[in-house]
């Protein structure tokens, strides 16, 4: 029994540590991809006047934005006939798990004004939120570097310790 239980504890501790580190990495990736997406929206609005639903649907087709869960959820809702403001808010709320509370709040803030003003107004709002997202990305990167290794090491340490004690 002990021969089976000890490796199981070791495996669980390692998995917990590595999955906590992986969550940090995924959050950073999602925030960076979202930033890239907003930059693309900013660029499209600067040089064109494509309506937002069409623009978002075309961005969702691009492979580089496949890792933006917010965009996938939003696209699905739009394709189901939801109005953009409702779809945006629902997708932003659902994105809290991948982007964190700050990322979700940023999207909700953006959704309240996106598409509702003239072009200079839209570009200004987008620039401000992209700057806020820059700060979130930097914080996520720092957190991943600081805590990622720590979580993995802690998982390995507790796993090995428990393994040795139980053996």
């Amino acid at each position: 029994m002990r021969e089976l239980f000890s490796p199981a504890v070791l495996f669980c501790a390692l998995a917990l540590g590595f999955s906590a580190a992986d969550r940090l990495r995924k959050r950073e990736t999602a925030l960076c991809a979202l930033r890239q997406m907003l930059l693309e929206v900013h660029l499209s609005l600067s040089f064109g006047s494509v309506p937002l639903p069409a623009l978002l649907l075309s961005l969702s087709q691009e492979a580089r934005f496949a890792r933006v869960p917010f965009l996938s959820a939003l696209t699905l809702l739009l394709q189901n006939g939801e109005a953009l403001p409702d779809a945006w808010n629902a997708a932003a709320a659902a994105a809290a798990s991948s982007l964190g509370k700050e990322g979700s709040a940023l999207l909700l803030r953006l959704g309240a004004v996106l598409g509702k003003t003239d072009k200079p107004g839209q570009l200004e709002v987008l620039s401000r939120e992209i700057a806020a997202l820059d700060a979130l990305c930097a914080a996520a990167l720092q957190k991943r570097r600081r805590n990622g290794a720590l979580y993995r090491a802690a998982g390995a340490f507790f796993g090995v310790s428990a393994f040795l004690i139980l053996m």
């Binding site: 494509v50 309506p51 639903p53 109005a83 403001p85 996106l114 598409g115 509702k116 003239d118 072009k119």
Partner: peptide, 15 residues
Amino acid sequence: AAFHCCCEYSVYAHE
């Protein structure tokens, strides 16, 4: 809501 829907939720595109 009706106005924004007519603008395709993109007022800037219909200035």
